[in-house]
Design a protein around this nucleic acid. Structure first.
Lengths: 242, 242
DNA sequence: ATATAAAGTTCTATATATAGAACTTTAAGA
DNA sequence: TCTTAAAGTTCTATATATAGAACTTTATAT
């Protein structure tokens, strides 16, 4: 049971920690149970006891386990699970996501900019775009970095609202904005250095990279958001027969 | 520029490699360009030259760069990008995904089983379920592990087809199957040991955990699939105004 | 042929990861 | 109080990660 573990460049103790974390999560052991001893785990995974001990130490530090000499390693009560953000699959549900619980916004960039790359749909405005880049936090935790490109004229008409509120509710609630097409994409990527700093992650940790594009009736992009979410914060759910 | 890097438990050289890989991917350097020298990168990231050299070696091994003494480190042509699987957001598009390019199936388990946990929607059949667990491969690469639970009576009626073909096309094309509700969820998780072996990943690597549930008109679950995709294989795209 | 530039190696050094064994400390039961 | 069980420490050991410096090798320009 070591081929896969030893082929990885990740330290063994981190992998063992992850295996144990997942076993805990899926209920292999319940609160109050004892894990197999360090010696047993060492034999099971064919690694040194110090390696298991280091792994257990991490989980101890995370509040999942309690190791005590002369006693064993016991399972602590599961910490309350932070709810995941359910990314809506319709503009209205996506927008509703924020009505109840507005995150804390922190502005990072506020300037004229061109949309990088090719959008999912639509054509780019010749007037250019206004970029607001900011982080969203909830309970003190930064959970996403969002770069929003507003079509310049649109931005001018709603500047005060866009600067102070979440963008999608503003877009949907404004009578003078004609939304004709909207698409969203998601891929799973890896955190880069700048995003790692903002999201309190390590470089290479997984993130959800989401792009949302909204076009008017002339198929012009009026809103484009590139969002990097911490992967542990998001989930998606959708009706396959809608 | 080292706080974030040194707070991680991941070896520095792996993080530097990831930073460089992402810079390459986003076009900071193009084919034929030279990277900054090992000394320059060492200074930039405040790490030893041997650390940078190890990072560059990984990218050299991946075919992204070519380091030559007396010359520098040049950028090689990007390897062809493997297309991501676009996970449909409607049953029909999801099913069409497979019509054109059937993956290679490898059976892992084939037995009576109960659906673990609570499904997204619907009620569980008292008759129980038949489980087929298998891997899907494309071009020799295993890209997902899928556990499909078929309602027992349904399975009996279509056993030969379910055993040899992809399940969703069978479900949709059969006249005697009444699909009333279908939902899909996705979260981003981490690879466990068993899945790591099957998907040729390391424990802890990111994966997409998808559940699809289909119910009949009596709100009974007739099909439930738990799928673990390699995160680099999947993408989602959806119409937000559908 | 020579000089310069840059990767790569060797050296000395410390820190961390991992291994196995022996020993110590703590906890709990008899 | 004693015994047993299990975590934790210390020891010896090797491997790997990381650091800085000096040196070597290779490639290229002059």
């Amino acid at each position: 049971m070591t081929d896969t573990l030893r082929q990885s460049r990740s330290p063994l103790y981190l992998q063992i920690a992850e295996i144990l974390r997942q076993d805990l999560d899926r209920g292999v052991w319940l609160e109050g149970d004892f894990l197999p001893t360090v010696s047993e785990l060492s034999a099971k995974y064919s690694v040194a006891k110090i390696t298991v001990r280091q792994a257990v130490k991490i989980l101890d530090e995370e509040g999942l386990l309690k190791a005590r000499r002369g006693h064993g390693t016991s399972v602590l009560p599961k910490p309350p699970v932070r709810d995941r953000l359910v990314l809506g699959t319709h503009l209205s549900t996506l927008t509703d996501l924020y009505r109840g619980d507005k995150p804390t916004l922190k502005l990072l960039e506020d300037r004229l900019a061109n949309i990088p790359g090719k959008p999912l749909i639509g054509n780019l405005s010749k007037d250019g775009y206004h970029l607001l880049k900011r982080t969203h936090s909830r309970n003190g935790e930064v959970y996403c970095v969002i770069s929003i490109y507003f079509e310049k004229q649109l931005f001018k008409r709603h500047e005060d609202e866009f600067r102070t509120q979440l963008a999608l509710p503003v877009l949907l609630d404004s009578c003078d904005i004609d939304l004709a097409h909207a698409r969203q994409s998601l891929i799973i990527g890896k955190c880069d250095y700048n995003t790692a700093r903002l999201l309190k992650l390590a470089v290479g940790d997984s993130v959800a990279e989401v792009q949302r594009v909204i076009c008017d009736t002339e198929d012009q992009v009026i809103y484009l958001a590139d969002v990097i979410y911490r992967s542990d914060f998001v989930s998606l759910e959708m009706d396959l027969l809608a």
